[in-house]
Every structure is written in structure tokens, then in C-alpha cells.
Amino acid sequence: MDLILSSAGSYPRIGDAPDLQRHRRAYAQRERGEISAGEFTKVENEVVAGVIREQIEAGMEVVTDGLVRWYDPYSHFCRGLEGATIDGLLRLFDTNVYFRQPVVKGPIRRKAAIIVPEYEFARSVSTRPVKPVLTGPYTLSRGSILEGGYRSTHELALAYAEVLAGEVRELSRAGAELIQIDEPAIIGHPEDLNVLEAALAAAGRERGAARLLLHLSFGDVAPLYRDLQALPVDALGLDFTYSPKLPALIADLGSAKPLALGLIDARNTKLETKESVFPVLDAVLPALKTGPTYLTPSCGLEFLPRARARLKLETLKRLRDGYLGGHR
């Protein structure tokens, strides 16, 4: 069986060593007006290239650009929209990270491609396939303040889906084979699964040959697992760290969709061991009816210090190789 190693989203943009602090310094210089937007983009490009190199060195077979250019998973999308502005800080789910809340005041429309140019750059500096990441329409809607243009967060989710459909179409044309859509907000709102379903169908309508991977994190996905199988996406990425019952559930129900198994805790520094990971693989893998299967961190790695993020990916590779090599 193939087990493909992949990142699940963000990667720390700075490290503790002085030579890894370039992004932070350049950001501050940009804020003070000491360097131009072009100069800052150049630094961002170098950091993206470094982050991709680090993932590949750690053994990842599918990489991301580390979401290095994102202020946060919400405002990054809404800065490029007509009809939306950006408001104050709010806590990102149960993390200690804050995002700026979008405020929707009227019909939203994409002014220009948001993720496509970032994807194209990342691909140009990567020797491995790059997986672009989009914040999903339902989650964007849930995190937005709605002041006009739509009557409900449900309507707004469908409007965001139209915006994202354009991104998906262009990413697919640009060569993306796998596109990750993050929808953490659905975990707290299972009553909205029908909204999520409609929004994902719209967002993925023109995906062409690209496959959509729906990624869920920041909560227990086990209660939703059965319903996720019916969603109009091609693969499911699951955070295992909140769900002690998930392995048994998958073993029991199986999966008609390929899975990305988020077994490595991207929120805590403690390193996983074969004692913690192999039993889960033993339970889950026989129940998967179709591949490929991905092994990933539970979510983006930006919650960890840079050195530890790298160590987590190296651990993932060591565990995968050990498992396939039968070193029990």
C-alpha cells in the first residue's frame, strides 16, 4: 500500500536562529515604509522557497507553500474581494492565534486571482508536487461579520463558494492535481452539513482533473465521519488528535474516499512514536477501499516553533518508513 507523506497547510515562517528571522525583519521594515512592496515580496519568495526545501528535505512527497503570505486564513481571501473589509482580531478556534474578521457589506466579487499566483510561484521552486490550500466557503462565512449583501451566513457561504470556484478552476488549469479546502468551522456546526455540501459542490464545480481534499481540524471529527463520506469532494483529511474513537470508527465503517490521516499533532511539541502511531495505522489502513492514502500533520505546522515543525515532519517520515519496512 502506498502511504504518501504530505504537509497539511501552514509552516512556520521564521525560526529562532538569526538567519531564519528575515521574514520578521522585512515585515517590520515594510510596516515602517523602509522597504518597498516589491522588496518584501522578494523576501517572501525566498522564505517560500526555504520552507518548501525544508519540507522536501524532511521527506515530504507533497508540499505546500507554508501559507507564508497569509496574514491569516480569513483575511487573506477577503482582502482581494469587492464588498468585504477587514475588522478586528478574533481567536482562531481553540488556538492562541488570532485572525482578522472579514466584514461583508455587499455582494462579494473576486478582484483578481488570490491563490493562483502563489501556487505558480511555489511550483516553480519545488521539485515535488505542490498542494494549494483554500479556506473553505462555509468556514469563511462563519468567521465573517455579515452587514449586507446577503440575508444569512448560509447565503454568504454560497457566495464565497462562487469566489472559490474561480480559484479552483484556475488552479486546476495551472496544473494543481490536489487542492486542499479547510473547513474547520463545520465541526462545531453539524446542523449545517447541507450548507457545506451545497457550498463545496459549487466551489468544486469546475475542478477538472484536480481532486479536492476536504481537511477538518481543531475539533473531534468522529461524530461527523459518516456524513463526510457523502460530501462532493474526492478525499478527506482528518485531524486525529481530538478523536480517540476515530480509528475504531474508520475500521468499522471503512472509507469509500481516500483519506489523509492527520496523525502527527501539529499543536504540541511532543514527538509521536511507533507505539502511538502504528496501532492506528493497523486499525485504519485495512478499512480503506481506495487510495492513495496520505500521512500528514493534524493541521498546519505554524503553531510550532520552526525547528520542531521540521522534526515533526522527519518523525512522520521515519514512522512511515518503519511501518512499511516492517520494523515493528
Binding site: P12, Y71, N96, V97, R100, T269, P305
Partner: peptide, 17 residues
């Protein structure tokens, strides 16, 4: 004292371990 992690924007802090 842990390594630096970002809290938002360009704000980083040392998260204890």
C-alpha cells in the same frame, strides 16, 4: 522557554514548554 511562535501579523512570542 520554547521557540518562537506567531500569534498574529508579525507578532511572535516564546511559548513555554
Amino acid at each position: 522557554t520554547g521557540g518562537l511562535v506567531r500569534s498574529y501579523g508579525n507578532r511572535y512570542y516564546h511559548k513555554p514548554v
